[in-house]
Design a protein around this nucleic acid. Sequence first.
DNA 1: CGTCATTTTGCACGCGCGTGCAACACATTT
DNA 2: AAATGTGTTGCACGCGCGTGCAAAATGACG
Lengths: 340, 340
Amino acid sequence: MKQDKTYATGQNITADDVATAAGVSRWTVNRAFQKNASISAKSREKVMQAALALGYVPDMRASSLASSRSNLVALLVDDFSNPHKLVMMERLTRILRQNGWDTLLVNTLSRDDTDDALLNASQRRVDAVILIGIQFDDDVLKTARGAGQFRQLIIYARISQHPNTISIAVDDKHAMTEIAEYVLSRGYTRPMFLAGPLTYSAHLIRHETFMNFWKARTGCTPESIGVRAYDSQMAYDRVVKSLSGREPADFPDIIVCENDSLAIGATDALRHHFKLRVPEDIAITGFDDVPQAASPNYNLTTYRQPLTKMAEYLVEVLDNRASDSEDRLFNGHLVIRDSA
Amino acid sequence: MKQDKTYATGQNITADDVATAAGVSRWTVNRAFQKNASISAKSREKVMQAALALGYVPDMRASSLASSRSNLVALLVDDFSNPHKLVMMERLTRILRQNGWDTLLVNTLSRDDTDDALLNASQRRVDAVILIGIQFDDDVLKTARGAGQFRQLIIYARISQHPNTISIAVDDKHAMTEIAEYVLSRGYTRPMFLAGPLTYSAHLIRHETFMNFWKARTGCTPESIGVRAYDSQMAYDRVVKSLSGREPADFPDIIVCENDSLAIGATDALRHHFKLRVPEDIAITGFDDVPQAASPNYNLTTYRQPLTKMAEYLVEVLDNRASDSEDRLFNGHLVIRDSA
DNA sequence: CGTCATTTTGCACGCGCGTGCAACACATTT
DNA sequence: AAATGTGTTGCACGCGCGTGCAAAATGACG
């Protein structure tokens, strides 16, 4: 049944073909496909009919080349193990597309690869590069080849100190304060903080905020442990290692996690390794509200970022409709479930 | 600290600029950036140094326009709720990029949107469109505008009856037979099959295979239920509804799920709603081996698709190195854990 | 040192479309 | 009917690079 090896229908149809078919000039054809072009409704109609009949589709490579705007953004992602990335990618690509932007997905294999990934984006002359990852640090950006080719560099869901960069992120300080207030108000007294990689200052905010808050409000410095990646398995192992051999009295009564991946790993460790109950024996909080957090198995108390608002603001920035090019922090909200 | 509003370093540098700087013609410059170009090592060196000094990056829009090959593929994804999609996307983008292919990620919002998504890909003149989704059916493809613009249409991780299309997928029949053999060999006698959306024939294979196998080998027809989407929550609700009010003797002793998302929802339902143990009271099998399946919480017996091999074969097809343009089915392997 | 095979380089032309301006058509006003 | 204004259309030129071929440079060999 499968015959044709290619899916193509012969040679490409250009605006010229449509022009002769519609009895207008080529420029009128292209105008018909532009948004705010000066063209009469009548001739646009003629053009569109001819285009449909011929199966003409404008070539954005050529239009981009001529207009020097590509309506393309590169999305650099370096951590596919965190399920929250999937949520972010869905939201971003959806809202970008609804606003006329296409997305080039670049899988940044490792930290050393960032440079290559940026080069990749440059070659396509994307209008902006969006970074959603954890390995991108300011040094990499500074020395990146081809970094001069794109107009905007946007750090999404993270803060960056790098100049010429816009951060669109949740206000970690505000968010973590809200979590800490909640933890305190629920009467927990021996919290432990489970942090992710503490390589860059931007990652420290949640950690610092919680520690400072707790110290200021109770006088005590909470215990704190960390892992090298936002990975459930690592969190599991780390919690096991940290709590093994302790007297029950020395256990924390709640583990405040930097994100849901860690929280899930911690929960599994408490339940399956230590045979403890969550939240009865030890409570847990997370951050992100990944889909799994809502499952009856975890019922995780967590913090939801306003991803839609953030994506919409991103579009504003891309369209140069944003009032300024400063960083923008958003507030999400605490999602209270059973885990704490 | 953040001063410059744009990241651009003035106007674009073209091959001409590099040419004058290196003392060669523009064509030599471009040759230096081509793979198998006829150019001496000496002048390539000269060019590369000048290019580096000026920060020149070749413009793929122009090269694509001139050569009519874009080295770009569109990845159409329509179901971001399944965590396995994240795994597939990571593998695909990684291997594609390692082989010189860029990926345009198109979030296909709904079934009606497929047409628009394909149009989107056409406008960028991608060399191929890769479909990893469940909503794409043959009717949509038939009537798609702009479908004639790309050379190849590849259905990934699913079978399609559509001509002019290549499927790269796991051999569902073989895989499900392996699962069924295992279930039988472990002595289960009252299996229930939990299926996903049964809209297209391609989705029925796993279901049919299991049902036929069991009937042939035991003479009994297993019970079978289904949900409208590959969603854990739906699976949870469906299992609750199906088993509520039954006598314990009428419970299945194993639930064979079409994929891990459903298996996870089923597991949660058994544990949290019915307070049953998995696998002691009722066992579970899944399909895909999502990261979560390996967690100590689920320990899911499941089937892993050879995603790397599949992606590598995809590259072969894109490079026209594949022996033929027929569908290609791969075998994965059973991953035995505790859940069954 | 000359001849020929081979590699390397330069170039006219084209890929498909946008920009800015000039020419044109039409409706409105005096 | 002429003059004015508004909306619409056509066109020269350029965006940056690849293709195929011819000219030039290089190397091999007698």
